[in-house]
């Protein structure tokens, strides 16, 4: 739909036609990367704009980003301490608060990322319907902002380590690496859902709803049930829910890197990595294919 070539006098020739052929063709990959490269400056400026303007009229400012995981962690630590809920914690030397904070933070980053990407096109509606620029820019800049939020939360986690006088293994520096599949999955999901969300705003709400309850179905505030100790069918059920959720692997790998200095990257982790990469690639491709439809369907 959007071919660009250079003519003799060096002016780029842009063609918009109805076929959409080259948005499906294999060569679209080249276009996608080139556009992203050309507009990297805009991505950077939008991230900066959103970041600096987000809390310009707020007293607590960026603290609002880090409150939710802290609050959730405090509540569950309290419930557990008061023996209202029983959460066994055996295989790890992490204190429960840190254990939960890690899980909740990673889940939070994942959901924030996916939700921000999904809603990015609708949120940038005024811009999208007025000027042409590669729409991916909006998704990637939303992702950038969500990742900055994630970094702020990571700082809180590090401060908590200090507060609990817990010394993580140095392998903690590898955490971003094992979280990569999770992040790719989130952005990929966002790229898939963003075009659909421009038409059906249900998408954003559905995600919010699913993510809210999804937190309890990953090893966030409690560990995956150990099937060697109990054979209750409920536990088996929960075990498989965890194992089938690709985000679980990122959370588990992070915890074990921090507490033991090594992570067992089994077939499950590998599968989740492949899935993350696949969803990102297909999602971006899908997004690119329906990009010309976005403005008129807002």
């Amino acid at each position: 739909m959007n071919e660009t070539a250079s003519s003799r006098d060096g002016l780029a020739v842009t063609t918009y036609d109805a076929s959409g052929r080259d948005r499906i063709a294999l060569s679209a990959w080249r276009v996608m990367f080139r556009e992203l490269h050309e507009f990297r400056e805009l991505v950077y400026r939008l991230v900066l704009r959103n970041f600096t303007s987000q809390f310009r009229q707020s007293f607590l400012g960026y603290l609002w980003i880090v409150f939710p995981p802290i609050a959730t962690t405090v509540v569950f630590a309290l419930l557990r301490q008061a023996d209202i809920v029983t959460i066994p914690l055996e295989d790890t030397d992490l204190p429960y608060a840190l254990f939960a904070l890690l899980g909740v933070t990673i889940w939070g980053v994942f959901t924030q990322l996916a939700q921000a990407c999904t809603g990015s096109i609708s949120a940038g509606g005024a811009l999208v319907s007025k000027i042409y620029f590669p729409r991916e820019v909006l998704v990637f800049s939303a992702a950038g902002n969500a990742l900055i939020g994630g970094l702020l939360r990571a700082v809180v986690v590090l401060i908590s380590f200090a507060a609990f006088a817990y010394m993580p293994h140095w392998e903690i520096v590898l955490v971003p690496l094992v979280l990569l599949p999770t992040l790719m999955l989130a952005i990929g999901l966002g790229l898939f859902l963003a075009p659909i969300n421009t038409m059906m705003h249900d998408m954003g709400r559905a995600l919010e709803f699913i993510f809210q309850f999804g937190m309890f179905l990953v090893p966030s505030i409690y560990p995956t049930p150990d099937l060697t100790q109990s054979e209750s069918s409920w536990q088996v059920c929960l075990f498989w829910l965890h194992k089938l959720n690709p985000v679980s692997y990122g959370i588990d790998a992070t915890r074990s890197l921090i507490s033991t200095g090594s992570a067992e990257l089994g077939p499950g982790f590998l599968a989740s990595s492949v899935l993350g990469l696949l969803v990102l690639a297909l999602g971006w491709r899908f997004f690119h294919a329906c990009e010309p439809l976005l403005a008129e369907r807002l």
Binding site: A12, T14, T15, Y16, D17, A18, V128, A295
Partner: peptide, 22 residues
């Protein structure tokens, strides 16, 4: 809107040489 690339055409095609500023 179509000439500046905001909407895609249903049929036909638009060709612009250089940067079109609206």
């Amino acid at each position: 809107s179509i000439m500046s690339g905001i909407y895609g055409p249903t049929e036909g095609c638009v060709t612009v040489r250089g940067r079109l500023q609206a």
